[in-house]
Structure formats: C-alpha cells, structure tokens
Design a protein around this nucleic acid. Structure first.
Lengths: 236, 236
DNA sequence: ACCTGAACACCGTTCAAGT
DNA sequence: ACCTGAACACCGTTCAAGT
C-alpha cells in the first residue's frame, strides 16, 4: 500500500490529532515519571502532554492504578535474561537481581508500583518463568523455589523503593546532584547520632560510621547475598 | 491543686475547644489510618476530626510527611524489647522481627512510612540501639551488624508494605473479611496462571499452587530465616 | 467506539488577619 | 504563640453529550 503526502492546501484547518492508544498513554506516563517523579504523574498531566482532557484517558485505562501497573510492566521489559544455566544458578540469579535492581533504579519512582503489583503483566510473567526455570532446573524443591523467587523479588523492589524515597527527598529540596545530596544528608544523620546521649545510645554513638555507610550499592549486594546464600543452604 | 467544677451559668456560650497539640494531632492521625486507611488520612480529615481547619495543624507539624513520620514512630512505640541475651541472639532477633512485623501489621497502612523513614524518631532509635546491642554483644563484626540491621529492617517493612497493599485492594473492593478476600484473590491468580500457554510458561503452569500459596505468615518467616541464617553464617 | 467539557468531591499548603 | 477563613493550584473520576 503506497501512500502519497496530502497536499498542503488540502490540510484540515487544525493539524490532525495523534490517535490516543493505551501504548501511547503508558509511554507518556513513563516519560513523565522519569523526568518529574511520581508526584508529577497524574492523569491530568498525562492528558495535558497528549493534548487532551483527562476524561479521554479512561477509554484506554480503567484508572490510575492500572496505568501504574502498565508502566511497571513496560519497565520490566528492559530486563534482559539469558538461557538458564543450572550449573551456575547462584551467579545467574545474582546477576538477574543486579540487573533488575539497575533497571528499577533507572526509573526510580516506579518502585512503588513494583511493591504493589501482582505479577500478571507479560514481562512479569516472563521474568517469573525465567527465575523458576533457573531454580527448578538447578534441582531446587518447588516450594523453596517459589518462596525464594517471591522473597527475592520483594527484596529487590523494597530496596529500589527505599532508594526512590531518597531521590524524591532530593528533588523536593531542589537539589540535582545525587552525590552532594547524599553527602549532606548522611552528614546530618551522622551529626544527629553523634549528638545523642552516649549512656542511653552507646551503640548508635559508637558505630555511627558503620550505620550511616552511604554506599547503597554495597548494602543491596550485602542483603542479596544473605538471601542467595540462604537459598543455597536449602538446596541440597 | 484542687479544682472545683465551674457552675453551669458561668459556662462560656460555646464549649471550650480542646487545645490542639502535636500529640493530639498524631494520635488522631493514627486513629484515622487504622480505621479508614492511608487514602483517607489527609490533613483536612485530621483537622475535621479535631473540629478545626486544616491550616491550624501547621502550627504543630510542618507538613504531611512529618505527620506520617510522627505516626510511624508512635506505632514503633508498641514494639517491646527485652534485655539482649547474646547466647540466644538468633532466636531473640527472630522474635524481634516477628514482633515488629505483627505491630506493623496491626497498623497496616503505616508500612509505607516505614519504608520512607530515616530512623531518627525516639522509638526508631530505641529499637536500633537494641538490635545493635544484641548483635555486637553476640560478637558480630560492627559492619556486619549494621548492614544486617539495615537489611532486616528493610525486609520487615517491605513485607508489611506489601501486605498493606492487599489490605487496601480489599477495602477498595468493599470487602471486609480478610479470609474470603484472600481466597477469591488467590483463586483469580490461580485461574489466570492455569490459563497461560503451557509451552511458553511451563514453570508457572506447573507450579501454580506453590507460587500462589496464600500463607503470608509462612512467606514472611521463610525470608526472615534466609536472612538470619545468612547473618549467622557471617558470624564466626 | 472514542473523545470531550463540565462538574463533583476532594487534596496540601500559604497567607493575611485575628486573638 | 496559636488559630482561622479564604484562597491557590492542584487531584481522580463520572457523566451526559457529541462525533
């Protein structure tokens, strides 16, 4: 089917509006989420971006919660997964967790939807299938595999959500540089802990530095390894 | 100081309004949260309950986030803690986690604040001090103890938050019975997984029952033991 | 079937004014 | 110092009406 450009004198008086569609709405939502955060993502804001009224969206998504779930599954689509390799299940599971965490981190504010979501979107299914295949093929008991997958997913989403809170706090303070924010924030906590009465809070005062270690990545991996080691111990 | 009742004819035309105070506002907030959920907790709703306008609250709390943090610390006050017993650190840490989880579960919708909060409230400090004292006295390395406390707290809050989402979904569906909701909900997921193409999702189809086990308590304890076992392995 | 404008019943927060 | 009414700049969702 060849198409020919409409000659300018035949153009309708106002440019033809781009057709609405669920995909378009979801993509627009994600763009707003990434650029301006969860607080800025409203039905009205999405509608405005698409040059229409908020009521128009309801022909394509049933409400805001559903929109959030759809955006979440779109984000999950970025997580890539390789062929399960049973012999190296531990490192592969770890890599999967790291990759998921990275992807959620790139779209910080989606993490809240991650915690609320029931895994029914196409990408959630794909990833669930992958994790189960990896663990079952490695010989794990189905119940251990199911619970392990569930707890690991919760942990990944939980950490990402916590991270997104920091990000939101930073934005609300009008700061832009992640590093300088983290330093000033951790500095404040440190000062506060150090000012505590040492006879009442000897531990907090003594171990300020350990307790306020700002390396979020190290904390995530630490907990991840606690979980994976525990799963390995239940393997044989 | 003895006080005598004011005679009825001296009463002011309208009854004297109960004095506002931060404590009163926070308690009122918690009451609304427990009875009607996070969505119902608004500055306006709290003000209405206290028979005043929303603007009046801002003399006692600087904004809604602060109110949420204060409510959260009030909830943490319900968590009781015993003298650290280094010899039984594992069971004591486990009991602490279970107790925290129970308390957060009683006030389901506070869990979101739990994930966002920086531990600076009096009760957060008390509990942090307790966990650190328990682990350090048991001989754990300070960094392992700090990270362990941090990851365990995240896990507890994360699971409670996930639970609160189910609770909210139930409320939004107008249901009241926790059990019957869970059954119908899990039933839907089961049906959906079973309807999936088995050649594309063999694992999800085969292990539906394990994957949709509705026993939230068992899932929580499973992940808790993964974490605590991992911590124990890093102990010696 | 899809889109719209207008309306309903809400929000958090600020600010000048009162006591 | 504390409280207030009124206002500002928003929300999500519904609904009758249009095409």
């Amino acid at each position: 089917m060849t198409s020919v450009p409409t000659p300018p004198w035949r153009k309708s008086p106002r440019p033809v509006k781009q057709q609405l569609s669920q995909a378009l709405i979801v993509e627009t939502g994600l763009r707003i989420l990434d650029a301006e955060g969860l607080d800025a993502l409203s039905m009205r804001r999405v509608a405005q971006e698409l040059d229409t009224g908020p009521a128009s969206l309801y022909a394509h998504v049933s409400n805001k919660d559903e929109l959030l779930e759809l955006i979440y599954d779109l984000v999950l689509g970025e997580i890539e997964v390789r062929e399960p390799d049973p012999a190296n299940w531990k490192t592969q599971l770890r890599e999967y967790a790291m990759e998921s965490h990275r992807v959620l981190g790139r779209h910080a504010d989606i993490a809240r939807a991650a915690m609320a979501a029931v895994p029914t979107g196409p990408n959630a299914l794909r990833l669930g299938e992958y994790m189960m295949a990896l663990l079952i093929s490695a010989g794990m008991d189905p119940r251990d595999a199911s619970f392990g997958v569930d707890r690991l997913s919760l942990y990944i989403a939980g950490d990402a959500y916590e991270g997104s809170q920091h990000y939101a706090r930073m934005r609300s303070k009008g700061m832009n540089d992640r590093e300088s924010y983290l330093n000033s924030f951790v500095g404040q906590i440190k000062d506060y802990y150090r000012s505590l009465p040492p006879e009442r809070f000897p531990m907090l005062v003594t171990y300020v530095d350990e307790l306020t270690d700002p390396d979020g990545e190290a904390r995530f991996e630490y907990g991840l390894d606690l979980l994976i080691d525990g799963m390995a111990a239940r393997m044989k």
